[in-house]
Amino acid sequence: MRVPVLIRRPPEILSSEITDEGLFLNRRKFVQAAAAVGAAGVAGSLLRPKGVRAAEPGQDEDKLTPYEDVTSYNNFYEFGTGKGDPVKNAHTLRPRPWTIRVEGEVGKPTTFDIDDIWSRFPPEERVYRLRCVEAWSMVIPWFGFPLADLLTAVEPTSAARFVEFKTLHDTEQMPGQRRGVLPWPYIEGLRMDEAMHPLTILSLGVYGKVLPNQNGAPIRLVVPWKYGFKSIKSIVSIELTREQPRNTWMVQAPNEYGFYANVNPEVDHPRWSQKRERRLGELFKRATLPFNGYADQVASLYAGMDLTRHY
């Protein structure tokens, strides 16, 4: 089941062959028209609100968030806690050479070189909504491959119940780690069935370009039905485990952030509402959808669970 807005799966893409943004945008226009995803176009600035909106904005208007916003408004505390810090500071990250260790409850523990990943798991385009726990959202054309493909390659054992991801921990490359704002390295985790779900991808690029450093180069997780902080960046280690991983934000503030972190308008953050969100580029907020609009694909994973308790 490769449902979501899958556009194409090229056999192999070298970074040198990646479509440049102009061509990409033209292609997008065609694809968008064909798929009736919504009209292309860049959202208006604050002073140009796009006319008067109906009380309930159309949820199907998922226009791509401009590349500039996607790459300049980031939460990546390894490079500073301001939204504009990562784009300024992430030049110290060296995304190549890069290896990812995949180990734990697997038959074939493997250290992958990032270039091998590009050739072994050719990326495809996936356009996903990204909903931040801070109540803003974007629509991003990722370039990635199903995490399931990588996990299958290392042959998980029957004992593997969870997957734990770690970001690089290197204060030279990630100067924000010199401050103890969060416990480093950043850790995230998924249940095995969430990790194997076809919507869950490892991303290598955005807008047909290699991931910019501030977006989590050279490889990051994208789990579109969960709050953005689950989509861990600049991954160096993936471990299949028996125990539920202790993800960073849950450790930091357990009353505010849980392990599951599924987008849920019914469960507010203790300090702010999660009912509505601001799509970047829009003035008027829109309703937040359960599982960020991917309920049809993923709600069954949580059948019978109390999602107010497992937030």
Partner: peptide
């Protein structure tokens, strides 16, 4: 910055 549209991706914030 308001008139120049240079408030970044989330002007209200």
């Amino acid at each position: 910055d308001i008139f120049g549209g240079t408030l970044g991706a989330n002007p209200v914030e």
